[in-house]
């Protein structure tokens, strides 16, 4: 569902008229398709193990998307080009990323522990088990039981690793046609203390296309 700028009140009223629960209508600002406007990253201090991992990282050998695998949740959210969509339901949130066809289905259940939550991306279980809840208008998603991967595969943080003990706390807050996402990472194997990465998105009227990653387009080195 697309919303117009400044339509929050109207959406709330429309929600009531359509019989949508009021709490859901209040959250509807998050719903829509988004494109990255900016990405900012505060500092993270690496452990010795992470230092070693970064030193050993070879992009054209180790980048998981050479095998058509998304490197991490942060990597999927942080890729600037492709749009992605949030759809809210009373019992779950659906987040469709174009990149690598990541389709998340996150239960909204404040009583559910992350360990008991389902793997939320069917085709990519290494993206972990997630459960969501609302804190006021902020959607909070907690994730654990992830596979080894990389927080980032581009720029100065290229090759920054994540262990299987990484825990994510994603916080989504909408303000009109802007969406603010903060991701708090806790991974004592590789990072001395939790660190966050923040992204800003703007609402767009674009279609989330099928990605259909092709292996020989992802990694063409071997045929040269």
């Amino acid at each position: 569902m697309k919303t117009l700028p400044g339509s929050r009140t109207g959406l709330f009223v429309a929600g009531l008229m359509l019989g949508v629960p009021a709490a859901l209508a209040e959250r509807a600002d998050l719903a829509g398709t988004w494109l990255q406007l900016s990405a900012g990253r505060p500092s993270a201090t690496l452990t010795h193990a992470a230092e070693q991992a970064v030193a050993e990282y070879v992009p054209l050998r180790d980048d998981p998307d050479l095998r058509c695998l998304p490197p991490s949740l942060t990597n999927v959210i942080g890729i600037p080009d492709p749009p992605w969509e949030i759809r809210l339901h009373e019992d779950r949130v659906e987040i469709d990323f174009e990149y690598m066809d990541v389709r998340r289905r996150v239960p909204l259940d404040p009583e559910l522990a992350v360990e008991d939550a389902p793997f939320t991306v069917r085709d990519h279980p290494h993206l972990g088990r997630s459960v969501g809840r609302f804190e006021g208008e902020v959607l909070v998603i907690d994730t654990g039981d992830v596979g080894r991967g990389y927080v980032d595969t581009r720029g100065p943080a290229e090759g920054f690793p994540q262990s299987t003990g990484m825990r994510y706390e994603e916080r989504y807050r909408a303000d009109g046609d802007r969406l603010y996402v903060e991701i708090i990472h806790t991974d004592p194997v590789y990072y001395v203390e939790p660190f966050s990465m923040s992204f800003e998105f703007f609402r767009v009227d674009l279609e989330v296309l099928e990605f259909d990653c092709q292996m020989d387009a992802a990694n063409y080195d071997e045929r040269l």
């Binding site: 900016s38 900012g40 993270a44 720029g155 100065p156």
Partner: peptide, 9 residues
């Protein structure tokens, strides 16, 4: 590591 706003973009 410190990357400013718009770093990824």
């Amino acid at each position: 590591f410190i990357v400013g706003a718009l770093g990824l973009a």
